[in-house]
Design a protein around this nucleic acid. Structure first.
Lengths: 341, 341
DNA sequence: GGTTAGCACTCTTCTTTTTTTAGTGCTAAC
DNA sequence: GTTAGCACTAAAAAAAGAAGAGTGCTAACC
């Protein structure tokens, strides 16, 4: 109990072995099966297991069952034991073929990657992308439809385009809207997209206030258009939802339905959104995942072209940590163009 | 066997009762439970049941179980027995609140409806929308980014906007692209969007062929942009995926996983796509559903503004047929603006 | 002191048996 | 044509038994 047992090398090796076996087999791991690997008898292993259990790294389902890793165990593994290996040739090859296809736009590449990762790993992957603030306003166009309807098209230097439709009040003069758009194009081009609203209010609004009587309506149109650009511009893609459902530990309808619900629910967007602190990669196990106590979420930031975001892999707690981490890192390096190619 | 038994009124009432009870309870229906409703003894009902079974409208799981409707039974019900009722006040109210919200654009309204239907019925709903061919070209804009990149923005009179990015070959003159876009804006405005490619080839291409040396590159850009507009512009929305999974008949992991797979698979887009013949509403039961033998799909066409498409409701075979049909019809009338409001 | 063989014990899982229950088909009487 | 009565069936639920995997502990071993 109160014993301060230290985590010696054999205990580490044992924990590593237990976790990696469990990841493969999804069965509680018994002392017998580890004899060869650890080069000692099952009795010795059992003794060590008791120690590991007291430390909280492994647990058992019932008094005479094999051991399974605890959440703390996985956490210890991730922090101290795992060694992200090189990608296998197979994994590497598949990824390479994607990136050699130059035609892909950034966000296509990310999405495509996502699919591949889901495919290779059999987990679910999610990407939450956002237009980064280094997008600069390139141009805003007004297109005049019938019936007092107009469309405002906003475009940035990174090539991101968004549009929004408005119905003008009866008495609004479309010409004035178009003139204002021209003014914006003269004054605000090159402004970081998140600063546009501000400049619109303090630089453009005062000017049009003098020239146009219904200036508030006109102002609001552009305000809305830019505002929408910022808000709307979070796009989320999910790939391989069912993969997760098919993981063998979810073998009852309860679990499956619960997880399927969560995967469809929009709220899981929040879950992906942020990596706390400013680490590039972070692993959230069980409770911490903010999604479901029976999963692990691995998040990885990326930033490329006009877009930045987070990729998240959702898998069972007995995830192939090493592989997924390698895969993610490799992929993001490619996307960010850090590989010199 | 060879008996030609006729479907008299009592048999009809019995079949209707069996189906509607089964829809509610999801349990095989026994003769006893129907005595009150049919006003006769269980023995009589059993006799009639034998007749219905011979006709193929009901079946039993094993020799001493109650009866469940067969696929043919559902089909008979849908064709002869059900009477789409008026919506309940509750259903009506929820729908009304959506439509009173004038700000919704068409496609938003459809999507919103979808969510409500999934919510009310606990089935899965899908909409496959397409820009209808009565969209006319309104305008095409070229936006010039750095690095030989340009964006082509295509807009129709119904206010649908699409954009596509291109990287120009080194030696292409951007001015010429812009000039061509202006020419298109003069010549092709008002052309049905599906005809634009053709006119582009036979009316515009010959002209630019004379003026521009690299005319093929320029032509291809616009060709691609318009082509993409047509291809891209099928949008599919799914709502309430999990609802279907939660239906009580899918009480084993097998079924749930299989159906979840199909719901995520893109191929189910094909399933939704068309209603054969030119009926407005059609019901596909089991095998016919083209999706899964354990579901029913009800499809309903709609057409509104610049968009047309099909709404499909996917539910268990023991679907609340009457309610769903009423709901769909009511909803589509509203969307199409046929209610005079 | 750490390591190991041996063994009783525990819990799960699988198989078999028994009981209960819902509902049928058929016969004979109304 | 309708109904009561009854033997019969199959499923589902509950109970009982057998097999297996793995543990904890003790005592002997190096």
């Amino acid at each position: 109990m109160g014993d301060k047992v230290i985590m010696d090398d054999r205990k580490k090796a044992l924990l590593k072995e237990i976790i990696e076996t469990y990841v493969k087999t999804v069965r509680p791991v018994g002392s017998n099966s580890l004899c060869k690997k650890l080069k000692c008898s099952s009795a010795t292993i059992r003794n060590e297991m008791v120690a590991l259990e007291n430390m909280g790294y492994i647990e058992k389902n019932h008094i005479s069952s094999g051991r399974i890793p605890s959440e703390a165990g996985y956490k210890y593994y991730v922090e101290h034991l795992m060694q992200p290996k090189d990608l296998t040739g197979e994994d590497m090859l598949k990824l390479q073929t994607i990136f050699n296809n130059n035609e892909l736009e950034v966000s296509d590449a990310v999405t495509k990657c996502l699919e591949i990762i889901s495919d290779l790993t059999n987990y679910t992957s999610v990407v939450l992308g956002k237009n980064s603030n280094d997008n600069l306003l390139k141009q805003v166009n007004i297109i005049n439809l019938d019936n007092n309807k107009i469309i405002a098209v906003v475009c940035t230097d990174k090539g991101i385009v968004e549009n929004k439709q408005f119905t003008l009040p009866e008495n609004t003069n479309i010409e004035e809207v178009i003139k204002t758009s021209e003014m914006i194009n003269k004054m605000l081009i090159g402004t970081p997209i998140n600063m546009v609203s501000e400049k619109l209010e303090f630089e453009v609004k005062p000017i049009i206030a003098k020239k146009i009587k219904d200036y508030n309506t006109v102002y609001n149109i552009f305000y809305d258009a830019f505002h929408d650009f910022l808000v709307h511009n979070t796009n989320i893609h999910v790939s391989g939802r069912v993969n997760l459902l098919k993981e063998p530990e979810y073998d009852n309808t309860e679990d499956i339905k619960r997880i399927a619900s969560k995967l469809e629910d929009e709220s899981f967007q929040d879950m992906v959104s942020k990596i706390d602190g400013n680490e590039e990669l972070k692993i959230y196990i069980g409770e911490e995942s903010n999604f479901d106590e029976n999963v692990t979420v691995i998040k990885r930031k990326y930033k490329s072209g006009g877009e930045e975001g987070t990729i998240a892999i959702i898998g069972p707690k007995r995830m192939e940590y090493e592989r997924v981490v390698s895969l993610l890192n490799y992929m993001v390096d490619k996307i960010e163009g850090k590989d010199g190619k």
